[in-house]
């Protein structure tokens, strides 16, 4: 546990839970489950709600892409969060990754806009999407 001074009179201990892994069946209804998990974990880092909203968008894009391009295998999400960073890596099995569609372009554009860094890769039969968001409100403030 680390303590962070998040503002006047507020001392918040930031949990560092290590990696949290979530495995989801590739269903549309699961996108929201992923969002809720992401926002819960993100709120542990004491980032602002605007940043949490961005993460929800990013996660949504990530899971949607994995569902649409995957081969029907479960989608695995791995979250790591600490004082300074929120990182999530999502992956699923796929036979190929088609990057030519408009949907894909739109989704990756949004992903890039909401994250500090993001990447989409296809390796060894798995699509792997990563998203990293820096925690703006933290030890650095005030």
């Amino acid at each position: 546990m680390t303590a962070t001074n998040a503002g006047p009179g507020i001392d918040v201990a930031v949990a560092d839970p290590g990696a949290v892994t979530l495995t989801l069946p590739p269903l549309p209804s699961m996108v929201r489950v992923g969002r809720l998990t992401a926002s819960s974990i993100a709120s542990l880092t004491n980032m602002t709600i605007d940043d949490i909203d961005d993460i929800k968008i990013g996660i949504s894009e990530m899971i949607t892409m994995l569902i649409q391009h995957g081969d029907g295998s479960p989608v695995t999400l791995c979250f790591e969060a600490d004082d300074d960073n929120f990182v999530v890596e999502g992956s699923t099995a796929a036979t190929r990754l088609d990057v030519s569609g408009n949907d894909f372009a739109l989704a990756t554009a949004v992903l890039e806009a909401v994250a500090e860094t993001s990447s989409v890769a296809f390796n060894d039969g798995r699509i792997v999407i990563r998203l990293m968001k820096a925690v703006a409100v933290g030890a650095a403030e005030r």
């Binding site: 998040a6 503002g7 507020i10 918040v12 929201r32 969002r35 809720l36 926002s39 819960s40 709120s43 004491n46 980032m47 602002t48 709600i49 605007d50 940043d51 949490i52 703006a136 409100v137």
Partner: peptide, 29 residues
């Protein structure tokens, strides 16, 4: 007050609720 958007913890503190309650309320469908 702060010139930026608040954290969940700050909202919770302000309303005298616990953070989980605030988060759940915000996420409620």
């Amino acid at each position: 007050e702060t010139g930026r958007s608040p954290t969940v913890a700050e909202i919770a503190e302000h309303l005298q609720l616990d953070a989980d309650t605030v988060l759940e309320a915000m996420e409620a469908a």
